[in-house]
Simulated assay, not measured.
Amino acid sequence: MAEYALRVDFNASNNEAEYEALLARLSLVTELGAKKLKVYSDSQLVVEQVNGTYEAKELRMKRYLEKVRVKLNGMGEVEVLQVPGGMNNHADSLSKMASKETHDFGSVYAEILLHPSIDEKQVMEIPVRPNWIDPIVRYLKDEILPEDKSAARRLFAKAAHYVLHGSKLYKRSYTWPYSDA
Rank of each mutant, 00 (worst) to 15 (best):
Y40D: 09
Y40C: 12
V46M: 07
S43Q: 07
H165P: 01
L45C: 02
H90S: 06
T175I: 03
L22M: 12
M124W: 09
H115S: 00
Y4H: 06
K35D: 02
T30Y: 03
M61H: 00
R25C: 15
L155Q: 08
N89L: 07
I144C: 07
T102I: 05
E58L: 06
K57R: 13
E147H: 15
L65E: 01
H90I: 09
L23Q: 10
H90R: 09
L140V: 12
K149G: 15
E20I: 08
K121Q: 01
H115G: 00
A98F: 07
K141T: 11
P84M: 02
H161V: 07
N89C: 08
Q82M: 09
G74Q: 07
G86D: 10
E111A: 03
M97G: 12
R129T: 15
A34V: 07
S27Q: 06
N131S: 12
M87A: 04
E147V: 12
T30F: 04
G76P: 04
V80T: 13
N89R: 12
E58F: 04
K171G: 02
A12W: 04
Y174V: 10
V80F: 13
S167F: 05
L59C: 10
G166T: 04
N89M: 09
K57P: 07
N73Y: 13
S41T: 13
E111L: 03
L23G: 06
V39L: 14
A160L: 09
